[in-house]
Simulated assay, not measured.
Amino acid sequence: MEVKFDGKRALVTGAGKGIGRDLAKALVKCSAEVFALSRTQEDLDSLVQEYPGIHPVQCDLADPEATKAAVESVGPIDLLVNNAGIIIQESFLDVTLDTFDKVMNVNVRSVMQVSQIVAKGMVERGTGGSIVNVSSLASKSAVKDTTSYCASKGALDMMSKVMALELGPHKIRVNTVNPTIVMTDMGIKVWSDPAKSGPMLARIPLGKFVEVDDVVHAILFLLSDKAAMVNGINLPIEGGFLTS
Results as ranks from 00 to 15, higher is better:
242 L>A: 12
176 T>F: 14
174 V>R: 08
166 E>N: 12
145 D>K: 11
118 V>G: 02
208 K>W: 11
106 V>E: 00
26 A>T: 01
107 N>Q: 13
44 L>W: 06
152 S>M: 09
192 S>R: 00
212 V>A: 04
180 T>G: 13
52 P>A: 10
26 A>V: 10
50 E>H: 01
199 P>G: 12
149 Y>L: 08
25 K>E: 08
138 A>M: 02
200 M>T: 04
145 D>N: 15
146 T>S: 09
179 P>N: 06
1 M>E: 07
151 A>P: 00
173 R>W: 07
176 T>V: 07
50 E>W: 02
223 L>W: 03
216 V>Y: 11
41 Q>N: 13
190 V>L: 12
22 D>H: 11
26 A>E: 00
50 E>L: 15
100 F>R: 00
92 F>S: 14
134 V>L: 15
12 V>A: 13
15 A>L: 03
132 V>P: 03
111 V>E: 07
60 D>S: 13
94 D>P: 00
55 H>G: 08
189 K>G: 02
160 S>N: 09
243 T>A: 08
103 V>T: 01
17 K>Q: 14
209 F>C: 08
100 F>K: 00
168 G>M: 14
198 G>V: 05
220 L>I: 05
104 M>F: 14
44 L>K: 03
78 D>Y: 11
25 K>C: 15
156 L>P: 02
96 T>S: 15
45 D>Q: 05
149 Y>R: 04
122 M>I: 13
170 H>T: 10
20 G>S: 12
95 V>E: 10
44 L>T: 08
74 V>P: 03
150 C>F: 01
39 R>I: 13
70 A>W: 07
29 K>G: 12
243 T>V: 11
211 E>K: 02
152 S>N: 05
175 N>Y: 11
103 V>A: 03
48 V>I: 15
